[in-house]
């Protein structure tokens, strides 16, 4: 229910940059996901929005109001912490109820609200336990319940599903999306899991080494990556990135020869193509190599092939089988090739 703006926000500790030059507008009711590897500044950005960390420079606005200097308890946000941060001496029930007590929600509503929140995260049976008697996944769900028990202006979730097993994680993803839609609360969500980002986000903010790499919808991030980092971070397996050179409108690298009509001499470049945009073919293809690994998973077969010294991932048909070291040819979808600058990694459009 709140609009959040980050204006040139920076955070540094001495020589260490936590976050650098972040500009971002988050619309009301939007679900924004910060995606990036560990240590890239996701938590720091989130803590600054929460008011737990003061930016070294720049401004954070909520509904147009400058929040610099406003204490965390006065910002009306609810946060799920990466380390759960459950109160060890209180039961799960008391933990979930704590924000209601602190925010002076009428006592008569507490029980119903706590139970509803516990139900959403499937924790009803464990309400009497202390956090010390819970597994990692259960603690994480208790932390989530404590955040969704009331209606704040903003939800901040720092890797709230990182400790759940795959099945529960998928279930909770759907749950979180529903909770957010039903409560219509602006949400900032941090993860290093690109699937989570793709499935949950209205918009994804990809970060790396304290800086934003790209902001866009999941489709934009997937179809139109701004640089090799984003391209290599999204997708499972991620985009293949092959270094080579363009001469006379043809990209060449060991085992790979791709005509790129209309491209002049660009010197050293990186060619990118996604494993799913390839097809194994019998009668010629741009990519030639030999089979390095075949992994049937049921719905798709992952083929790793070796071209020159490089390993390339292909999503092949699920019936595809081939002996190791046998030669294969792969055709690339000419409409779905990406070129990046060999030096900077930036996309060449």
């Amino acid at each position: 229910m709140a609009r959040i703006e980050l204006r040139n926000v920076e955070k540094r500790w001495g020589a260490v940059w936590g976050v650098r030059g972040v500009n971002l507008d988050i619309a009301e009711e939007e679900f924004v996901v910060f995606l990036g590897p560990s240590g890239c500044g996701k938590t720091t950005t989130m803590r600054m929005i929460a008011g737990l960390e003061e930016p070294s420079s720049g401004e954070i606005l909520m509904d147009g109001e400058n929040m610099n200097g406003v204490d965390a308890r006065d910002r009306d946000v609810a946060m799920v912490f990466q380390g759960y941060a459950l109160y060890p001496n209180m039961t799960v029930y008391e933990n979930i109820r704590f924000p209601l007590r602190m925010r002076k929600v009428p006592r008569s509503q507490h029980d119903a609200l706590v139970r509803r929140a516990a139900e959403m995260v499937q924790l009803t049976e464990l309400l009497d336990r202390k956090p010390g008697a819970l597994s990692g996944g259960q603690r994480q769900r208790a932390a989530l319940a404590r955040a969704i028990v009331r209606q704040p202006k903003v939800f901040l979730m720092d890797e709230p599903l990182s400790n759940l097993d795959a099945k529960l994680r998928q279930h909770m993803r759907v749950q979180i999306r529903h909770i957010q839609r039903d409560l219509r609360i602006t949400t900032v969500y941090v993860t290093h899991d690109q699937i989570e980002a793709m499935t949950l986000a209205d918009r994804i903010v990809v970060m790396r080494s304290a800086e934003i790499q790209q902001i866009g919808t999941p489709d934009e991030i997937y179809n139109d990556p701004a640089n090799t980092f984003v391209a290599g971070f999204i997708g499972a397996p991620p985009m293949n990135l092959v270094e080579g050179g363009i001469e006379g409108g043809v990209f060449r690298a060991p085992g790979l020869e791709v005509p790129l009509p209309g491209r002049g001499d660009l010197g050293r470049v990186i060619l990118g193509f996604r494993p799913e945009d390839c097809a194994v073919s019998m009668d010629g293809g741009e990519l030639r190599g030999c089979v390095y690994g075949v992994e049937p998973t049921g719905d798709v077969t992952y083929l790793t092939l070796k071209a020159g010294e490089r390993l390339i991932e292909i999503k092949a048909d699920r019936q595809f089988r081939a002996p190791l070291d046998s030669p294969v040819q792969v055709a690339l979808d000419p409409a779905r090739l990406y070129l990046f600058d060999g030096e900077t990694g930036r996309r060449i459009r």
Binding site: R47, A50, G51, L52, D71, A72, R73, R75, V77, A78, M79, F81, Q82, G83, A85, L86, Y87, P88, F98, P99, M102, R103, R146, L156
Partner: peptide, 17 residues
């Protein structure tokens, strides 16, 4: 852990509480 206090603060607790 400092996160514990941070959590209490975002939950709306005063320093004394």
């Amino acid at each position: 852990p400092k996160e514990l206090e941070d959590a209490a603060r975002t939950d709306g607790a005063s320093d004394l509480r």
